[in-house]
Design a protein around this nucleic acid. Sequence first.
RNA 1: GUGGGUAUGGCGCAGUCGGCUAGCGCGCCAGAUUGUGGCUCUGGAGGCCGAGGGUUCGAGUCCCUCUAUCCACC
Length: 377
Amino acid sequence: MYQVLKMEGRAKRAALTTVHGTVQTPVFMNVGTVAAIKGAVSTEDLEKIGTQVELSNTYHLHVRPGDQVIRQLGGLHKFMSWNKPILTDSGGFQVFSLAGLRRIKEEGVYFHSHIDGRKIFMGPEESMQIQSNLASTIAMAFDECPPSTALRDYVEDSVARTSRWLVRCKQEMARLNGLEDTINKKQLLFGINQGAVFDDIRIDHARRIAELDCDGYALGGLAVGESHEQMYHVIEETVPWLPVDKPTYLMGVGTPANILEAVERGVDFFDCVYPTRNGRHGHLYTNGGKINLFNAKYELDERPIEEGCPCPACQRYSRAYIRHLLKAKEMLGMRLCVLHNLYFYNKMMEEIREALDEGRFASYKKQKLDGMQNGKD
RNA sequence: GUGGGUAUGGCGCAGUCGGCUAGCGCGCCAGAUUGUGGCUCUGGAGGCCGAGGGUUCGAGUCCCUCUAUCCACC
C-alpha cells in the first residue's frame, strides 16, 4: 500500500508498505547489482547507515549465480541476509548498456553473457520469472532503454514495443504470484516510461501505461547523455501524467542536485551508482560539495571527510589515512568511502523527508544546493 | 687488481645503418564517469640521455679519458 502523507507543490512525502516493511519516501535505493554493495559493504553496514531499500539486478544474478540457485536458497532476502525491501532491475537496461552484445526482437532480447560469452535470451516473461525466483519486493518491467541520441522513428517503435512488453510483464507477474510455490506472492511490479527526450512520446506512453494499474511507475532512459536541463524538462512534463497515488521512480539518477530537482518535480524513488562507484574512486560527497581524496592537498589532512558526520568513516578516520588506503589500493579505503557516500545520500533523503513533513522543502533545497556550490557537486 | 657488462624523467626500460620538437610502462598531478565489469577514458607536469673531451653538417647512438655500479676471476 502506498500512502501520500503530504505534498509541497508536486513534491511528495509518502510511505510504501510492502511484505518486507514500509519504505519512507522520497528514498534513495542503495545499489548492490550482484546482491552485494561493491566496496566490501555488508548488510549489517547497510542497517547502520540507514538504508531502506537494496537494489539488485536481474540480468547479473541470472548469469551468476543463477536465479534457480537463489530460489533454491529461499530467495534474495534469505540469500543475502537482508530482510528489508529489495528492488530488482529487470535486465532491460542491459539491452542498452551491453549494446553490441545483443539483438532486440519482438519476443525479447538475445544477449551474450559478459561472464562467459554464452548466448542468453530474455523477454518479458523470462525477466518476470527470474525476478519471481529472486523473490524481490519490487520487480521492474522488462523494457528497452534507447540512447539519448536515438532518432524519433526508432524511439517510437521502441516505446511501442516496451508498452507491449509491459502488458506481457503484468500478465506473467499475475500468473507467477498466483502459483503455489512462488516465494513472494505479493511481488510488486513497476512499469517503465520511455521516450528519450521527445515530450509527446513520453506523455503518450505515460498515459498508456498509467491505465495498466501497475504498483508504481518509473522514468527510464534518462541521464544517458542528455543535458540536465533536458532531463528536468522531461521529468516535469511526464510526471503529471503518471498516477500521483503510485510511487514514481527515476531510474539511475543521480547527483544530489539531480535528486533535489527531481523530488521537486514529484519523483520519490531513486537509485544511482554514483555514491558507490565514486566512493571506490575516492570521490566523496559532503555538504560543501564533492571532494577527490586522491588530490595531493589531502596528504596531511587530519580532518574527517566531513566535520560532524556520524558515519563509520568520519567517526574515527582522517582524510590523510583514507587517502593513503586508497592509494595503497587497500580494500578498507574503498569501504570507508562507500560507507560515507551512502550515508550522505541516505541522510540527505531523510532531511528531504523531514523538510517535506514540515512544509519547508523549497527552502531546504535551496540551502542544500547553495552549500554544494549551486549543485556543482 | 684483471676481464666483461651497464649508465636515458621518481622506478623499470625502448631508442634500428649517427638525422626533424628523445619515446613507452608504472608512478605522480588533475579531470571525466548517472537502472555498476573494483573498470575504463581524457588531459598535464617531469629528462642539459653519468662527467669531460673528440670525430661529424649533425652524437642518446661512433672514438678517448674519468666516475659510478653490477657480474666473474684473483
